[in-house]
Amino acid sequence: MKPPDDNPAEHFDPLRPRLLRIAYRMLASVAEAEDVVQEAYLRWHQTDRATVRDAEAVLVRTVTRLCLDVLKSARVQREQYVGTWLPEPIVEPVEGDDLTLTLMLALERLSPLERAAFLLHDVFGMDFDEVARAIDRDPAACRQLASRARSHVREARPRFPVTEGQGRELASAFFTASRSGDMGALQALLAQDVVTYSDGGGKARAALNPIYGREKTLRFTAGLARRAGSTGSRLVYEGMIDGLPGFVTVEFDGALQTTALAIEEGRIVAIYITRNPDKLRAIRQVVPEDVT
C-alpha cells in the first residue's frame, strides 16, 4: 500500500531519543545506533502508517530487530578486534537506566536475544508481551532470557559503590597522581586486584592485553608518565563516562583519550581507557574546538 500523505517525522522525531538509547545499549556504539535509527526512519517512511495503532511499539520492534541483525556481524568483528574491545564511551547521562560501562561489558557476554529481552524489560520498562513482539519470541521465553541476563548483570554490579561525588574526587586524584608520576599517591588509590583495560583498536597506541594487579598497573602508569615528560596530559573534561567517574584528556602523543574508573569501597578496581579514534567521535562534541 502507498503510505499516507502525512509527515512521517511527526510521530518519529519525539521517539528518536528513546530509540537511540535502545540502539546504543544494544550495540554499545553511538555511530551504529545512529545508523540503525536512521534505517528505522526510512522503513517508517515506507510504512502504511494509517494502519499503525501504536507507532512506538512498531518502531521499537523495528530498531530491536535491526540491532539483532547488526549484532550477528558485530560478534565476528569483535573476535577479530585488535587488542581489548570496550564500548564506545559517552559523557552525556543516559536517562532512564543505570547501566554503567562495567555492566555493558557484562551484557557483551550475553546472547543477542538475552541482551534484547533484558534491556527492553528491565531497563526500558516494556512488559513481556511487548518484548515478545519485538524479538519474535513468546512471553515465557522472554522471561527466561531476561532472567538469565539479570543474573549476569547482578554479578557485575558493584557490591560497595561510592557516591558520584566521591567518584569524581577519586577520579581527580587519579588524574593528578598518574600524570605527575606520584606512584605513592597512586598506589593508595588502587585496589590490590585492579585491572587496566586499554582500547586502541589497532589505530592508537594501547596495551594489547588487560593489565592485572596493582604493581603492574603502577609500572605501566609510571612508564607513561616518563614518556610524557614535561608535555604531560591536557585535561579537557571531568565528569561521568558511561555512568562511571572519569575524564577526557589529550595525551602527550596528541591522542584524545577517555578514562573511566570503576570504584568499590573507596578504591579503584578497574580502569577503562579508550583511545581508538573511531570510538571518540561523539566525545569530540564536548571538548574545546582547538582540540579536534
Rank of each mutant, 00 (worst) to 15 (best):
D136L: 10
A117L: 12
H152I: 11
R133L: 15
V131F: 05
A132W: 10
E155W: 11
G167N: 05
V162G: 03
A134R: 01
G96Y: 12
Q144G: 15
D122I: 10
Q166H: 06
R137V: 15
L170R: 05
R143Y: 14
D122E: 14
F118Q: 04
L119M: 08
A106W: 10
L99S: 01
H121Q: 10
A141Y: 03
Q144F: 00
F160H: 13
A141F: 03
R109G: 12
A140S: 11
V131I: 08
L101K: 05
R115K: 15
M126L: 15
R115A: 11
L145V: 09
R157S: 15
A156T: 10
L105R: 15
Q166G: 07
A134M: 12
H121F: 02
R109V: 08
S111A: 12
F124Y: 13
Q144Y: 13
G165W: 05
V162Q: 02
R133G: 15
R133F: 03
E164R: 05
G167F: 08
A132P: 09
V123K: 12
I135Y: 11
R148G: 01
R115D: 07
R143N: 07
D97M: 06
Q166S: 09
F160D: 14
L120N: 05
S147K: 08
L113A: 15
G96S: 11
S151M: 02
L103I: 12
D97Y: 06
E108R: 07
F118S: 03
V162N: 03
L105C: 10
E114A: 02
L170S: 03
R115F: 10
D138H: 04
R137P: 02
S151D: 04
L101R: 05
Q166M: 04
A116N: 09
D97V: 00
R109E: 15
G96W: 10
L113R: 12
L99W: 02
M126R: 12
R154K: 14
E164L: 08
G165C: 00
A117M: 10
E164H: 00
L119P: 13
